[in-house]
Design a protein around this nucleic acid. Structure first.
Length: 328
DNA sequence: AAGTCGGGGGG
DNA sequence: CCCCCAGACTT
């Protein structure tokens, strides 16, 4: 990966310290091919990997923030929001001490606002239960709100260099196409990824998989002719139906966005970032919905810990249960 | 296993 | 217009 700063280059490619893939995860006859694939991908990553802001730090808190932001959210948008968020909340203690309303406000433009509530709560838990240190173990990370299988492994690998294998949509697609050559269930994909991660270069390896999925092994129209793994890729060799479109793919229930509950919720939360709204203003923001619909939106946001009813109307949640909230 | 949760970028 | 995105959580 090219970085502007001198002396910031990544370590040279070398064989992993552990002689994986482990038996059972990959057929032993394919060991040589997988080893070559890994070397090729790491070499490509060093030369052509993305230089993203959160890859320049090892601060576990900053990396945790980036991973929460990156859940179902494109890199470019996170790249814009992440520095400002960290400027507002430089440490986990600062985030833990901040009212939820301020965190939600700093979350503007990222979407899925419940993540801001969960991150806020996670910060409090890290301060209260982990002495202000982000846990390094996957199991402990997974107990934090908003941190699931992917995010826990991402933090373990990127912040602590643990040999964990975060499997996001990019990695799952690359593994299904290049390594398995067949659709993978989530469980099989995780197992395969676990067996591939080099113990001494976990961060680079996982970043490399993600970057390949972003730059070449894309979902829509993959750029196989220029892909650095073309010579090692099972799908490219065998052809046939795309392994990444079957099996583990999930349906697409999402309907029209405008006029949906998500759309109204997003609009209302964004309006509330300006401050408390009188009930008439809330009603005006929800034009097009009947009384039941408006109640559904407001109650849903309250249940998610995003908003709370106050004396003057509706406001972003302060982080503590108020009398107004309890009284409804 | 299926639904919900934002919003924007790209074909 | 449609699909997709560095997922997590509830039912």
């Amino acid at each position: 990966m090219r970085r502007a700063r001198a002396g910031a280059s990544l370590p040279a490619v070398s064989e992993p310290a552990t002689p994986d893939p482990r038996p059972g995860s990959v057929a032993s006859g394919e060991h040589a091919r997988v080893v070559a694939l890994r070397a090729d991908l790491l070499a490509w990553y060093e030369d052509s990997g993305r230089d993203l802001p959160w890859r320049r730090t090892r601060d576990p808190y900053a990396i945790l923030v980036s991973e929460l932001m990156l859940q179902q959210t494109q890199v470019d948008r996170v790249a814009r929001a992440w520095p400002a968020f960290l400027a507002a909340f430089p440490t986990v203690e600062a985030l833990a001490a901040a009212p939820v309303a301020e965190v939600v406000t700093a979350w503007r433009g990222l979407g899925y606002n419940r993540r801001a509530v969960r991150l806020s709560e996670a910060a409090r838990r890290i301060v209260d239960e982990h002495g202000g240190r982000v846990p390094a173990e996957v199991a402990a990370l997974e107990r934090l709100p908003g941190v699931g299988a992917y995010t826990a492994r991402a933090v373990a690998a990127f912040a602590f260099g643990r040999p964990a294998a975060p499997v996001d949509t990019n990695v799952a697609r690359v593994l299904a196409r290049a390594v398995a050559g067949a659709p993978l269930t989530a469980r099989r994909g995780q197992e395969l990824a676990d067996g591939l991660v080099p113990a001494d270069r976990a961060a680079a390896w996982n970043h490399a998989l993600m970057d390949l999925g972003s730059r070449h092994c894309t979902a829509r129209s993959p750029r196989c002719p220029t892909c650095p793994l073309a010579a090692r890729c099972v799908w490219y060799a065998t052809g046939g139906q795309d392994p990444a479109t079957g099996g583990a793919r999930r349906p697409r229930p999402q309907g029209r966005f405008e006029g949906s509950d998500r759309w109204y919720r997003g609009r209302l939360v964004d309006a509330l970032r300006q401050g408390t709204m009188p009930w008439e203003a809330v009603e005006a923001s929800l034009t097009g919905l009947d009384e039941d619909g408006r109640r559904r939106i407001v109650d849903g946001l309250a249940a998610d810990g995003l908003v709370a009813a106050g004396d003057e109307g509706l406001a972003l949640a302060g982080g503590e249960e108020t009398e107004a909230t309890r009284d409804g």
